[in-house]
Amino acid sequence: MGIIATSRLKSPWIMHFDNSSCNGCDIEVLASLTPLYDIERFGIVNMGNPKHTDVLVVTGPVNRRTARVLKNLYDQIADPKMVIAVGTCSISGGVFHNCYNVLGGVDKVVPVDVYVPGCAARPEAIIDGVVMALQKLAKLQGVAL
């Protein structure tokens, strides 16, 4: 189990789902893959497929249609899984909190492990969010990061 627990911390594969965000955070999630930030240094890979995902990165407020999609995607992820809400809207609904088609933050639909604030959240903050998720996982597993 030791080697698996360690490996989990070294290889978090992420999937990004855009609820109905403004694109700001989405593009920042993508930007964190690129040479300046190079998220792959930490073994983080954007898989784009819930079946291969460890960390679900969600941006944007949940609206009435994407709530279903988000729930479906979350259910398809194999355990252990973490959810990171990136950006103010995904935390609380942000500026869209009173729009008629917006339900609110991501935690209305799926449990969230790490909240990354910002409008838009910077790539550094997103990477930091993933690392925080790993720390949480490490604590749960009782191993050192």
Binding site: N63, R64, R65, R68, Y100, N101
Partner: peptide
């Protein structure tokens, strides 16, 4: 098209 099943009507 825009609205889901549980969205408000004629918002």
């Amino acid at each position: 098209m825009m609205l889901a099943q549980d969205s408000p009507v004629l918002p």
